[in-house]
Amino acid sequence: MNVQEKMQGLRRYESECYRICMYMLQCETLAVQAAKQALERLLYCDAFFVSNQASKVMRTEAVKASLAVKRGKMMMKL
């Protein structure tokens, strides 16, 4: 599967990923940043595209990315 095909596959999860990030972060700018990070990680995860639990994997990555962005923001305030 090439990068273009993977990107098309990820588009199916883009909205849900953003919604999870937005729910967790309550800030559009940070949610966009976290969603981008999560989707980028998934783009290079070959197992994601052959998994029958892709939605669960995406949710996990969205949560991880949101937490990472939140930590980064908190560290900037210190």
Rank of each mutant, 00 (worst) to 15 (best):
L39S: 00
A62H: 00
F49T: 09
A47K: 00
Y23E: 15
V3H: 03
K64A: 13
C27F: 02
K77R: 09
S66H: 12
E61G: 00
S55Y: 05
V69D: 07
G9L: 10
A34T: 03
K70E: 10
A38P: 01
V50G: 15
M75R: 15
E16K: 06
L39N: 03
E16V: 03
L42E: 09
V57P: 01
Q33A: 15
A35N: 00
L78K: 05
K56V: 11
L39T: 06
K64M: 10
F48M: 08
R41V: 11
M1V: 09
I20P: 01
V32S: 07
E16H: 07
Q37Y: 04
L39C: 08
L39P: 01
L39R: 09
T29S: 12
L43I: 10
Y23A: 13
A62V: 07
T29W: 02
L42A: 13
R19C: 02
A68T: 13
S15L: 05
Q26R: 12
S15T: 06
Y23G: 11
T60D: 03
M7H: 02
L25T: 04
V63W: 12
Y44A: 10
A31M: 04
L67K: 15
V63L: 11
Q26M: 06
V3D: 08
R41Q: 12
M58G: 01
T29N: 09
K77A: 02
A38Y: 03
E28V: 05
A65H: 05
K6Y: 00
R19G: 01
N52V: 00
G9A: 07
E5I: 09
M22D: 03
A34S: 05
L43Y: 00
L43K: 04
L43V: 12
Q33E: 15
E14I: 01
A62G: 08
S66A: 15
E14K: 13
L67I: 14
G9E: 14
G72H: 08
E61R: 05
Y13K: 04
K56L: 05
M74K: 13
Q53R: 11
L43A: 14
F48T: 04
Y18Q: 00
R19K: 06
V32K: 06
M75V: 11
M22S: 03
A35L: 03
M22N: 04
M74L: 13
A31V: 04
Q33H: 13
F49C: 09
A68Q: 11
R59Y: 08
M76L: 09
E16R: 09
C27M: 04
L78D: 07
N2R: 15
M24W: 01
K73Q: 12
D46Y: 08
A47F: 03
A62I: 09
M76A: 12
K36S: 13
M7V: 12
R19S: 07
S55P: 02
G9C: 11
E16W: 02
S66E: 04
E5H: 05
L10S: 14
V69T: 09
Q37D: 08
M76R: 11
M7W: 02
L43P: 04
A31S: 12
M74G: 05
E16L: 07
V32I: 15
L67T: 08
Q26S: 15
S55T: 06
C17A: 07
